[in-house]
Nucleic acid binder design. Structure first.
Lengths: 211, 211
DNA sequence: GCGCATCCTGACCGTATGGTCAAATTCAGA
DNA sequence: TCTGAATTTGACCATACGGTCAGGATGCGC
């Protein structure tokens, strides 16, 4: 009745190892890119011998694929907010908040995703064509409904979505540049808050959803 | 009096060779990242033997550095428009147009720049700290003046600039994603035009520079 | 035509990388 | 305590990469 020790079953330990490796891999892939990352570096960051990585993930590419997929999941979750809102000011505002928070808490993931897409999405092209396409069209419909209801200006939903993605992810992907322009210091709580406010204000007023 | 042959002096030929190599390098670095790019690939794309590359550029890093610097120059040139304008609607509008055009005509360069910054700007950190910092502060002053003159709302100039960069460069850096969401086709002339219009409309109204 | 500097390139080298493997270790279940 | 499956790991391998170099080709100035 008590085959579980203090903390872990066999499966749990396996999942923990995978999680540890994936976290290290995300960092290294973000910092060096797929080509610049080495299994040795990831192993060192995870505090494991290199051969152990290949026990859990047979190839570098399979490890990378898993990292990218995990990021994509986080992306999609944050997007649910969009639907639960009943108007553009609330929905898009909450979406901006959520994506800014991801950029702040999960910058490495954002960079890996950006890198993957920039290089032509060699690994997750199928996701772009299926899940992302579906999601985008769904949200575009919501936006079109808002426009039809007169709750915002007549803006092309696609370009609005691109702007939302671009603006929020910029704070993660170009975080280093922003930090440099901030006298070398990471954005403070207040500065992050100001960033969110600025982005929301400009976009929501820009599409005629407020005022 | 006619030491120049049909087309080229010694120096001119050298410059042409360097240009050819730099063009190939930009493409390969954009597609594969610094780590994923190989001198052999660049050589093949330029139609030259690998050893020839090392004659013009001693190391991979020196070649990469040159590519990044060239992109930065194009960036800065486009920014002059900002100053020549006498108000935010005109100045920022023209800046958006210019940067969108660069994203369209020079996507590889934009990707290389994004990749460089995302990886912590190992090669052009000094540019960020000097030239880009100066440029940014100069433009922020212009924006503050416009605000003081009541020609636009009171927006933090930094976050406005980040939004301009993010939005315009997104069309280059995430061009593949945009293409996929456009049923696999590159944006047409009309779609590019619509993109520019959307971006300008949202931002200029968002900051209270028009209407 | 000659001499010299520039330019070009095939062959080569040391290193680092992704990946393999077989032997050692751990550990749940009987 | 015993057994077998899961896990861990140091040593190893083939390959690909950045970079070198010596020798050959080219073309300008005289």
């Amino acid at each position: 009745m008590a085959p579980t020790r203090r903390s872990s079953s066999k499966k749990e330990r396996r999942q923990e190892s995978e999680k540890l490796i994936l976290a290290a891999a995300e960092k290294v892939f973000a910092e060096a890119g797929f080509g610049g990352a080495t299994m040795q570096l990831i192993a060192d960051m995870a505090g494991l011998p290199k051969a152990n990585l290949h026990y859990y993930f047979p190839t570098k590419e399979s490890l990378y694929r898993q990292v990218v997929q995990n990021i994509f999941q986080i992306w999609l979750q944050a997007a649910d907010i969009f639907d639960q809102a009943d108007g553009p000011a609330e929905g898009i505002g909450a979406y901006i908040d959520a994506k800014m928070e991801i950029s702040r808490r999960h910058p490495a993931g954002s960079k890996v995703w950006a890198s993957e897409v920039m290089h032509g999405a060699p690994v997750i092209q199928d996701y772009l064509e299926t899940t992302l396409t579906d999601w985008t069209e769904g949200r575009a419909d919501v936006i079109r409904r808002w426009i039809a209801e007169g709750r915002m200006d007549d803006i092309d939903p696609r370009h609005l979505l691109y702007m939302l993605w671009a603006t929020t992810q910029h704070y993660a992907d170009f975080g280093h540049q922003i930090e440099t322009l901030n006298h070398g210091a990471p954005l403070s709580d207040d500065q992050w808050s100001a960033a969110k406010t600025s982005v929301k204000r400009i976009i929501l007023r820009g599409i005629g959803a407020v005022q």
